[in-house]
């Protein structure tokens, strides 16, 4: 909190830029048509692995499941030498201590969803205690959800204040703010919610909980990346991005990296500034890497489930 003391005036969010629906979708589809050569592809795939928040957010999660996932995070595919690890494990608050212990000194972060994830329909007091519980158990990153109902009512101050107090409760943990774009209906709203989150103190803005469809899409992510760029031009502060949900194929992940590179540039091309929230993406990337290494198309049978 002490790092940046630059005075930023909070704008009136009613005047956030409008989004050209057709233009943004057209632009996003262009990123899928780049030709990527084998060597760049290999680097892109490894970078993708390194950007993954390996996620399990199920009601049926157990200590055993989380430990298994942590093992997977540390040993993605031991047959392939020199692979990076994933960036973080993303779990419910009740699983943070288990994950923290299982990951040890591997350097992999523990991210925890909080604030009554995924609906966010709880009192502010409950949300803050949820966050503090996760932080006290050792969470390095907190993924909060915004109150979409309040946002859609036009109660932007409520949303802003909530993010600000949650940020305060996070302490040293980095805060990811989930907009749940699938419930925000329009790109204009996505842009508005991104602006609110960034001005309120978000370290990351994140598309979705993964619990509803549509989750992350390329146009929505592009709108958010452009919001980050505008915010950076205005304040000089970098904000990280995390698309989550629905990204399960490495080809799509590479499209996202192209979009990131062409929208925000080199400085964002690492796991401090960009993450993929995904569970099945890792295996697909591993299969592609093995395919590049061996020259043989792979089968899911030969990769650990989780």
């Amino acid at each position: 909190m002490t790092a940046e003391k630059k005075i930023v005036t909070v704008p009136d969010f009613r005047y956030s830029p409008h989004i050209d629906h057709v233009g943004v979708e057209e632009r996003a589809s262009r990123f899928t048509k780049r030709s990527i050569k084998a060597e760049s592809k290999l680097n892109g795939l490894k970078l993708t692995l390194n950007m993954i928040d390996l996620t399990t957010l199920e009601g049926k999660d157990t200590d055993g499941k989380v430990k298994q996932l942590c093992y997977k995070a540390r040993h993605l595919h031991d047959a392939y030498p020199g692979l990076p690890t994933v960036a973080a494990i993303c779990v419910y608050p009740s699983m943070v201590s288990v994950a923290k212990k299982a990951l040890g000194n591997s350097g992999i972060n523990v991210a925890s969803v909080a604030t009554a994830f995924p609906s966010g329909q709880a009192s502010r007091d409950v949300k803050i205690r949820d966050v503090k519980y996760a932080v006290n158990n050792g969470a390095d990153e907190i993924d909060m959800v915004i109150s979409r109902g309040r946002f859609l009512q036009g109660d932007y101050n409520f949303v802003f204040d909530e993010i600000a107090v949650v940020k305060e409760a996070c302490g040293a943990a980095r805060l990811k703010v989930i907009l749940e774009t699938g419930e925000l209906v329009t790109y204009d709203n996505v842009r508005k919610a991104s602006d609110i989150a960034m001005y309120a103190g978000a370290d990351f803005i994140k598309t979705s909980t993964g619990k509803i469809t549509p989750a992350a899409t390329m146009p929505v992510t592009l709108v958010m990346l452009e919001a980050i760029r505008d915010f950076y031009y205005k304040t000089g502060k970098m904000i990280a991005m995390k698309p989550a949900g629905g990204i399960s194929k490495s080809k799509l992940a590479l499209h996202y990296l192209v979009m990131l590179q062409e929208t925000l540039g080199e400085a964002w091309m690492n796991n401090h500034w960009f993450r993929f929230g995904a569970s099945s993406l890792a295996n697909d990337v591993l299969m592609q890497l093995e395919k590049e290494r061996t020259g043989v198309y792979q089968s899911a049978n030969y990769f650990s489930v989780d």
């Binding site: 043989v296 198309y297 089968s299 049978n301 030969y302």
Partner: peptide, 8 residues
């Protein structure tokens, strides 16, 4: 070749 070596 690909009919024969595909792991799946």
């Amino acid at each position: 070749k690909y009919f024969a070596n595909h792991m799946d």
